[in-house]
Simulated assay, not measured.
Amino acid sequence: MTDTPTPTDIARDVLTIERDALDLMRDTLPDDFDAVVECLLKVPGRVIVSGMGKSGHVAAKIAATFASTGTPAQHVHPGEASHGDLGMVTAQDAVILISNSGETRELADIIAHCARFSIPLVALTKKPDSALARQADHVLTLPDAPEACGIGMAPTTSTTCTMAMGDALAVAMMKLRGFERENFLAFHPGGTLGAQLLKVSAVMHTGDELPLVTEDTSMGETLVEMTRKSFGVAAVVSGDQLVGIVTDGDLRRNMDGLMTHTAGEVATKSPLVIAPDTLLVEALGVMNANKRTVLLVTDSTNRLVGLVHIHDALRAGVA
C-alpha cells in the first residue's frame, strides 16, 4: 500500500520540478535572447507586454518589473486591445506576447496590429513552431518541462519559467543601461524600498535649524541654543568648520563649575560624523552601534552641512 504524500512532500516535488525546469532554461537559453535585449534597448517608445489568462498576470508583472528598472513598459490586456486599446500600441513600441501554446486566439488582433505597423514582435512560448512563433520577429522558447500540478494542465512550471525569463530580460537591460540604486529610488519614492534607498541629505536639518555655537560661546548661551533647537546637542564650529559637539553627556561630565566654562572647553573634539550621501539606513546603523540619537553631517572638507536625528530616520520609514 502506497503511503499518501504529505503536503510537505508535495511542496518539495513541486519545487523540484520547477527548479529542474529553471536549470534547463538556464542551460538552453534561447538563441534569440541577445537579439531581443538589443531590440528592446533600441525601442524609442515602450515595451508592451500581453498575454491571456495566467500568462496575462505574468505579463503584467513583467511590464511592472521593466518599468521599475529603467525600461518604459506597459501591460495591455488582449481582450481590451481588441476593443480599442490597440491605440496604446504605437509604431515606436515593441511587443512581447506570452502564450505557452503559441496558439492563443485572443492574441490575433495584436499580432495583426504589429504586422500592419511594423512593430517588433517577440514571442515568449514553449512551442517554437506555433502560429505566434512563426509570425514573431524573435522567439524566446521556454523549456519543454512538465507542469508541476500533477495533472499536467494547470500553469505552474510554465508560468514560473515565463516570469524568470522576464526577470532575465529586465535585469540584462537594467545592467546594460547602467541603471543604479539612485535610479531605482526615483521610481520607488514610497514604501520600504524608497526608505531603504534614501540618503542622509534627503532628511537632514540644515541652515537655521542647526544648533551652532563657537568655541568661546559661554555655556549659558550654549544651553539656550541646545534648548531652542531641541536636538539635545550643540555643534561647535569655527567658521564653517566643525570643531566639536556638546552633548548631554558632556554636560554631566562637566557639571561642577559648568557655567564657568565655554563651549570649546566642554565639547567633545573630533565627534562622530557622517557624509550627506550616506544611505539613511546606514546612518541609523551607526547611531545604534554607537548609542547616539544625533549625527552631525560634514562634507569631505569637514564643513558642517547638516544634522540627522534618529527620529528623522524613523519618520522616513527606516526601521
Rank of each mutant, 00 (worst) to 15 (best):
P7H: 02
P7Y: 09
D9R: 03
L22D: 07
L24K: 06
T28Q: 13
R46S: 10
S55D: 15
A64T: 05
F66I: 07
Q74S: 13
G79Q: 12
A81F: 06
S82R: 00
D85W: 09
V89Y: 06
V89W: 13
S99E: 04
E103T: 09
E106Y: 01
D109N: 13
D109W: 02
A112L: 08
A112S: 12
A112W: 00
S118F: 13
A123E: 00
L124S: 06
Q135E: 11
T141H: 04
P143Q: 11
S158F: 01
C161M: 03
C161I: 04
M163K: 01
A170Q: 02
F179M: 02
F184Y: 05
F187Y: 13
G191W: 09
G191L: 12
Q196C: 08
L198Y: 05
T206G: 05
D216V: 14
S218Q: 04
T222I: 02
L223N: 10
M226W: 09
T227H: 12
R228W: 02
A234L: 01
G249D: 13
D256H: 11
G257D: 07
A263W: 03
V266Y: 03
V266E: 03
K269Y: 08
E282S: 05
L284V: 09
A289W: 04
R292F: 15
L296W: 02
V308W: 10
D312R: 15
D312V: 13
L314S: 08
R315I: 13
